[in-house]
Write a protein that binds this DNA or RNA. Structure first.
Lengths: 148, 148
DNA sequence: CTTACTGCAAAAGCTTTGCATCCGT
DNA sequence: ACGGATGCAAAGCTTTTGCAGTAAG
């Protein structure tokens, strides 16, 4: 059962390489991120770790996220009307599906993203370096509840 | 010189139809939006209108934006680390280019957006109703400054 | 040992809300 | 006249920052 540490190891290594230190709290935050495909919020991470670190501060979570952003080891999905969501499992830009009812965020089976991005990059006149592709709608579970 | 009022008229009509009233301030906010292809922030709108309405409150701008959102007559580009930007000229989802240096937002000559969106909608399992396609990079002007 | 990290509390930044008054319709 | 709009100020939420103490390397 030593599989699945790849992402964790990569994050730890990259942080160390950048001069960051790995405290027990930070290690657990990274582990939680590496094992959370649900694109958690900072608060959700904090909540999940409180049992293990009853004194952990939410600021510590944010500071770790800041370090990861600086390393390009986490993707931040910004929202102005709710908490940001994070994806440290796939830190490079890719499409997301966001439920307008329950807020769930998922990685859809991405189709020909490459081609689409390439064509826009070419036509834009901008020197594109990154992108964000969000799709809003009802997730499968909320669809059932509404019979849609 | 009566061209270009189409969007303004549509916004006014839609707001009226929803029971909203059109005050002089509100009319000017709508006019400013209809004539601003630069995706202004709420504060930018406020700033541009102050000469005409020295007592206008920023809250009034936000309240008008809220009414427009309710009517689907404005597109809101949310950000958590800077002010939201608004597009009332093209209120339906479409790609945007955002300059990571100066913050400029532009509508690129969109390519086959339809096909891309359709393919993702189909594969996602979500009942997609809307989307947001952002591309980040240097705008033409900032490219020159950096010789990129 | 040096310097980054932690936890707490305060601050910051943008958007929303409450309220009295004003004004569209 | 009725009920929405305005302006001001206060509140709200999420994220960031300052600081003294602690601990990683």
């Amino acid at each position: 059962m030593t599989v699945g540490n790849t992402r964790l190891d990569a994050m730890v290594a990259h942080l160390r390489r950048q001069g960051h230190r790995i405290s027990p709290q930070r290690l657990e935050i990274l582990r939680e991120l590496a094992g959370s495909p649900d694109h958690p919020t900072a608060e959700a991470l904090h909540r999940r770790l409180l049992p293990r670190f009853p004194a952990m501060s939410l600021a510590t979570v944010y500071k770790t996220i800041t370090a990861l952003k600086q390393c390009g080891e986490i993707l931040e999905l910004q929202f102005s009307d709710r908490e940001n969501r994070y994806d440290a499992i796939h830190p490079t830009p890719h499409p997301h599906c966001i439920c307008v009812e329950c807020g769930a965020v998922a990685d859809p089976p991405a189709p020909d993203t490459e081609r689409f991005v390439a064509s826009l990059v070419e036509a834009s006149g901008y020197a594109i370096s990154s992108h964000r592709l969000d799709f809003f709608g009802l997730c499968p579970r909320c669809r059932k509840k509404h019979g849609v």
